[in-house]
């Protein structure tokens, strides 16, 4: 795992850049713990409508909120919502995809037809329907769960494909013939292939969830009292901050959202290049000496990650 990350840092500029952005984002999350204000009492704390200055780094809103400290909470909350969504979505996706890949047969066919159906169902209208019915009672956690429940079909299809290809590989047959138990094969031999794949998938899950969170909050369907990136944009728009000459109130959360997704996306681009066997071969031949001691199973010169 560590060697993987070290390699990524060394060879992939987009991964390096993406993780730098995310480190800054993480610093904001940590800062939220040191906020002079409480999360649910941000209003009427500071002078209103102040432009960015030394006292208020990102200015203040018309409601007397310090944008900088609101932002620290907002980033944290948006990441919590996305984290829950990703955990649930990938949880269902990995489990279903791997089980149907390994079991095959009727279970696989039934699961696949369900997955195929769920993929085509448009998610936003369903989310809007659920959100508008639960309006008011939708907390950060239920929102995360809701997004997660609707985002598992596509990942599960990809895990199934991975398992199907792993099952037919020579080393699996070797392990079976040498008497290794199937549980052990899955844990020891296959999981190392699945994990980097899962990492890339988790990142794309974050991209999706952040986008949905911003959208639903903008529509007024999330819990508008807890600061998130989406609710900051919602309130900024609600109090007409740009026409009233307070662009910082909206520009700050928007730029943050862009940077967050960009950070995640660049990391996934770097990871995707890493997983691409053609590019890995180039790297391996260029740095053959350095990696000789590496016993990472992912380094096999094999087409397992080929699309």
């Amino acid at each position: 795992m560590l060697t993987t990350i070290r390699d990524l840092f060394r060879f992939s500029p987009s991964f390096r850049f993406g993780s730098l952005i995310l480190i800054v984002v993480a610093a904001f999350v940590l800062l939220s713990a040191f906020s002079p204000y409480e999360e649910d009492r941000l209003r009427r704390k500071v002078k209103r409508n102040q432009p960015p200055s030394a006292d208020f780094v990102f200015g203040t809103t018309s409601q007397g909120q310090d944008v900088f400290w609101s932002l620290t909470f907002a980033i944290r909350n948006t990441l919590i919502i996305s984290g829950i969504a990703v955990f649930i979505g990938r949880g269902i996706g990995v489990t279903l995809g791997m089980i149907s890949g390994y079991l095959g047969g009727i279970f696989d066919r039934a699961a696949q037809s369900i997955v195929e159906s769920v993929i085509v169902v448009p998610r936003l209208p369903l989310l809007i329907l659920i959100g508008s019915i639960l309006r008011g009672s939708l907390t950060m956690f239920t929102l995360g769960i809701l997004i997660g429940i609707l985002d598992w079909a596509y990942p599960s299809k990809r895990y199934r494909a991975q398992v199907l290809s792993l099952r037919e590989r020579d080393f699996t047959h070797t392990a079976v013939f040498s008497g290794m138990g199937s549980f052990k094969i899955v844990l020891r031999e296959h999981l190392p292939f699945i994990i980097p794949f899962l990492l890339a998938d988790v990142i794309s899950g974050f991209l999706f969830s952040i986008g949905i969170e911003v959208t639903l909050s903008y529509l007024g369907l999330a819990n508008l009292d807890s600061p998130t990136i989406g609710t900051m944009i919602y309130w900024g728009n609600y109090y007409q901050s740009i026409p009233a000459g307070r662009p910082w109130v909206m520009v700050v959360p928007m730029v943050t959202a862009i940077l967050m997704v960009l950070g995640f996306y660049l990391m996934s681009v770097g990871l995707g290049e890493y997983l691409d066997p053609r590019k890995r071969l180039v790297r391996l031949t260029a740095h053959a000496g350095e990696e000789a001691e590496d016993d990472d199973p992912r380094k096999e010169k094999d087409d397992v990650w080929a699309p």
């Binding site: 928007m254 862009i258 996306y265």
Partner: peptide, 21 residues
Amino acid sequence: VVVYPIPYLIIAFVLIFVFAW
């Protein structure tokens, strides 16, 4: 690569504020 991951809502907002407002 920079434009692709930006949430749609934000792209639209920027267009509105720059070109319409």
